[in-house]
Design a protein around this nucleic acid. Structure first.
Length: 501
RNA sequence: GGUCCGUUCGUCUAGCCAGGUUAGGACGCCAGGUUUUCAUCCUGGUAACAGGGGUUCGAAUCCCCUACGGACUACCA
């Protein structure tokens, strides 16, 4: 199907942290490249110096690395088609822009911002810089050759605009959307080279994609409206068109609209892969990593947001993703991010995780809480509560009572489960436990069972109150295990405290 | 306003291209089971073709219109 090895690029602009939508775009590019044995390229689109944010570039690299997405060529790892930072390619674009001017496909424009503003006003704010107006503006089409040369050699700022060809129906076949047709007469003469000598995105992206031999442009839907312009640019240069695939947007969980950076903090879930500290304000935006998401889970969530395998499979290893992903099954409509399902994915991956790794995380938490435990104990507790948790941090929530006595006994549970005869029953059980020689789960179970049976009681009548004494609530893992871990002394002491508040 | 794109359970989606399904799966939710409790887990249930016209024996699937949503409309990407 694909004869040549594909070359794809992820081309973010270093204006801040990468949000989930961008990560997904990078992921789809990556999967596509890896599946076909192609190259994955990281290009930094920093042609707007005013929006440059310190640290953003490194953040992008690190965040994608955390996701398991790596590059073959790019700003951080080199390659044969560099430089990979557009600001460092500045001189290159001028060469190409001159070609366009020489062949009459682009022209110089000297209009001031005020003049442009006035032009838009005149047409009810709808006036575009296009064929209908370019003859009335200050540009190399209306000015004499002499005057143009004079302005160019003076200090007057100018831009270069693309001369949109008239009455052309541009037909493009998008890999995910199929046929798209746009009449060129509805398009305007976009600026290609800015007054500061930097190219606009439109020029830079086309020139670079061509020079870097990009075969497939896989990017967000927000670029769809400028696709016809890009196609016409390729045509103007006489270059071969790459394939285009425009990915649907990631939407807010509630309501409508594109998922924005602000939604995260507002709705209590991250929109960034990893934590980001704004260098200006010092503000910290949370990340999936810091919230306890496993990178594989995070990537899996993104994979299924807008793509489906055509089977019932939900969980994919990176290898499986690479094997099964295809652009044809990418959804056309935008997808809403669902925090609930994200939790479920993480739960699945936590279950797959080995206990040793999880136990190490647990130990870290213990230390933070001012506790410690032998590695073996951490491992044991991890095994006890693993299936109950969605995030590593929840091991603590499920096991704190192994290190600290409950401060209070849940009043709601007390009211429901602590009956008139309960103190007497627990007192009797306490005696049996006090006399127990062996405090291991098996032996304890026997002691408790014997007590229950010889007194004609039910398990629920005894076990739930005992649990309340030890844990403070009616929830948690096996009681016998708990008793062994906290030990005989602590067990009896907690019972006493519950009996004599 | 203009241009372009989109619309199947609450959410992610299968099915559409090659019309005929009890419109399937997953998350969530509800119920039951398992369990000393809670959670996990297992079983079952809930719930959708945006609306209207065509074409056709037959339309979620093909065509048109409307509605709604979104993106773009900068010397930002």
């Amino acid at each position: 199907m694909i004869e040549e090895k594909p070359r794809v690029r992820f081309a973010p602009s270093p204006t801040g942290p990468l949000h989930v939508g961008g990560v997904r775009t990078a992921l789809y590019n990556y999967l596509f490249a890896r599946q076909h044995g192609g190259k994955m390229i990281l290009r930094i689109e920093d042609t707007d110096r005013t929006r440059f944010v310190e640290g953003a570039e490194q953040y992008i690299i690190d965040a994608l690395n955390w996701c398991g997405i790596d590059f073959d060529e790019g700003v951080h790892c080199g390659g044969d088609y560099g430089p990979y930072r557009q600001s460092e390619r500045k001189v290159l674009y001028v060469k190409y822009i001159e070609k366009l001017i020489d062949s009459g496909k682009a022209y110089y424009a000297f209009d001031t911002p005020e003049e442009l503003e006035e032009m838009r006003e005149r047409g009810d704010g709808n006036q575009q810089y296009d064929a209908s107006i370019r003859g009335k503006m200050k540009n190399s089409l209306t000015l004499s050759q002499q005057e143009t040369d004079r302005l160019l050699s003076s200090k007057v700022p100018y831009v270069v605009r693309f001369m949109m060809p008239p009455e052309r129906v541009v037909k493009i076949n998008d890999v995910v959307r199929g046929k798209i047709e746009v009449d060129s007469s509805t398009l305007d003469d976009k600026v290609l080279l800015k007054a500061d000598g930097m190219p606009t995105y439109h020029l830079a992206n086309v020139v670079d994609d061509h020079l870097m031999k990009i075969t497939h442009v896989i990017r967000g839907e927000e670029w769809l409206p400028s696709l016809p312009l890009h196609v016409l640019l390729y045509e103007a240069f006489g270059w071969r068109l790459p394939s285009f695939a425009h990915l649907p947007l990631l939407l807010k969980p509630e309501g409508k609209g594109k998922l924005s950076k602000r939604d995260g903090d507002r709705l209590g879930f991250p929109v960034f892969p990893t934590q980001w500290k704004d260098p200006q304000t010092g503000e910290i935006a949370m990340g999936f990593r810091e919230e306890g998401y496993l990178p594989q889970a995070f990537v899996n969530i993104l994979l299924r947001l807008g793509w489906n395998p055509g089977t019932d499979q939900e969980i994919f290893s990176m290898q499986e993703m690479i094997r099964t992903f295809n652009l044809e099954k990418v959804q056309k409509g935008g997808a809403r991010f669902d925090p609930e399902k994200a939790r479920w994915y993480n739960h699945q991956y936590i279950q797959q995780m080995d206990n040793e790794t999880l136990a190490k995380e647990y130990l870290k938490i213990l230390h933070r809480k001012g506790h410690d435990a032998p590695e073996e104990m951490a491992l044991r507790i991890t095994g006890m509560v693993k299936e109950r948790i969605n995030f590593p941090a929840e091991i603590w929530d499920q096991s704190w009572f192994l290190f600290e006595a409950p401060r209070e006994l849940d009043p709601k549970v007390m009211k429901k489960k602590w009956k008139q005869d309960t103190p007497e029953i627990i007192r009797g059980l306490r005696e049996q436990l006090a006399g127990a020689e062996n405090f291991q789960p098996g032996a304890l179970k026997e002691v408790v069972s014997d007590y229950i049976h010889s007194n004609g009681l039910g398990f629920g009548k005894v076990m739930v109150p005992l649990r309340i004494c030890l844990v403070g609530k009616a929830a948690g893992p096996d009681l016998m295990e708990i008793m062994e871990i906290i030990g005989k002394e602590e067990t009896l002491s907690r019972i006493d405290r519950a009996l004599n508040p």
